[in-house]
């Protein structure tokens, strides 16, 4: 049987420290939007997840 984590937020990436305080998923703080995008891309690749943009400076990486 194939056991996988799915439908789950793997990580949160943001440069807006006050938008994300804590959570069950690891939070990665970045310096700016550009770095956020790059970090989100890398985490998505590593976890085979997908990066979503919440359009408020917060990216979440979700395994679907």
């Amino acid at each position: 049987m194939n056991i996988e984590i799915s439908h789950f937020i793997m990580a949160i990436v943001t440069c807006e420290r006050d938008k994300v305080q804590s959570g069950f998923a690891p939070v990665f703080y970045t310096e700016n939007e550009e770095e956020s995008e790059k970090t989100a891309f890398l985490i998505a690749k590593i976890t085979q997840g997908m990066a979503h943009n919440l359009e408020n400076g917060v990216y979440i990486i979700v395994r679907h």
Partner: peptide
């Protein structure tokens, strides 16, 4: 539409990255 991928008037999904 922002980060929402649409086909005609239907929203398909949210896409985060510019490259994607």
């Amino acid at each position: 539409d922002g980060s929402l991928l649409c086909v005609d008037d239907v929203v398909i999904m949210n896409v985060g990255l510019k490259e994607t």
